[in-house]
Design a binder for these strands. Structure first.
Lengths: 189, 189
DNA sequence: TTTAGTTTAGACTATTTGGTCTAGTGGAGG
DNA sequence: CCTCCACTAGACCAAATAGTCTAAACTAAA
């Protein structure tokens, strides 16, 4: 299985943009990171923007999906599935250190670029609706508004991670998120 | 009362950096925004970095403080003070639209610049300890860990705001934050 | 009114930026 | 072996970038 130039580029861009932000990452940094000449880069992508947008779709989207799409197969309580997913986040070192890549890019680019806003929003919506369907399939009391709860879960996890990189650590993340878990448990009938 | 050049600069930088980010804001944009020549700008600040760092200390810090420092004078339950502060956030249009300015700058700059990390962390710590003291002076059950609760509150508010600018609105913010309020209420004895 | 210091003014510079262009190279199919 | 085309290579470019410098215009105090 060969490691294609295109993949090399996308991996490098993902990594650099994740840490330095989109505006903080220059073409030269990317070229240096993956040791390819400029010609190759512009052979695969027509602009920097298209490159980063591709990273959103082909790198960030799957990573986001991976997080909450754990074995739904089992007939398990939706809340428990969610809780396990949220706790699992702590195992991803980079997440605790740098926060959610989607959230970071959202904050940087959405206010100033509609194409980014759309692409990011798309992923966000899918994530939210998947969380929603997990919650629907759970023992949560009937009077709880699940839509806002799904949003609350995302907000809290993103927020906990965004205290990074200076204020957070795995332990701290878990302490913080523990309150979310208690709250979710308290909503069961 | 005159509107000094220095203040004009800081206001412009605050506004531009808030929306476009630090790397997304050029010196020329700043000059144009406040219609001053380059000489003046570099008379007051020796570099762009120093300028933005000054904005953190003289613009963002007071704004953050203003939010949670509401009439503590009254002998009121700390939780109620917090809840009122959190709800009040929704009245600040720009907050709901663009998120918390401290959080945004934190995510962009902290991973790549220690001076920013320190300055931002300083404000964060002060905010957290103020929240903590409000919580200590409240009717929250004794077995609740207040430190992590303070962190949870910040994380949730920041997270709710960071769903912006594409996913949020005042209504949505309140819906989301409503879960936080319920949780806080449930912690009272 | 002179003087000294602060503030304004903007032309100028060196570097970095994203992006183009043309020439070559390598490997798969004929 | 040849041919063709995807890919590599990096020199080159115009624009934007942060920051410098010198001169002038204020302003307040003597």
């Amino acid at each position: 299985m060969k490691y294609s130039t295109r993949d090399k580029i996308l991996d490098a861009v993902y990594k650099l943009v994740y840490i330095n932000g989109c505006n903080g990452t220059s073409i030269d940094m990317i070229l240096k990171e993956c040791s390819i000449p400029k010609g190759s880069l512009y052979h695969y992508f027509k602009s920097k923007k298209e490159m980063v947008l591709t990273v959103v779709k082909e790198r960030i989207a799957p990573k986001m999906h991976e997080f909450y799409d754990l074995e739904k197969v089992k007939k398990e309580d939706g809340v428990d599935i969610m809780v396990r997913a949220i706790l699992k986040v702590s195992q991803k070192e980079e997440l605790v250190k740098f926060g959610c890549p989607l959230n970071r890019l959202n904050q940087e680019m959405s206010p100033v670029d509609d194409d980014f806003a759309k692409a990011i929003n798309f992923i966000y919506d899918r994530m939210k609706s998947d969380i929603l369907s997990a919650l629907k399939d759970s023992s949560i009391k009937a009077d709880v508004d699940l839509d806002s709860l799904a949003q609350f879960i995302i907000a809290t996890v993103w927020g906990s991670l965004s205290l990074s990189p200076r204020h957070s650590s795995i332990k701290r993340y878990l302490n913080t998120i523990n309150h979310l878990v208690s709250y979710l448990e308290s909503l069961k009938y």
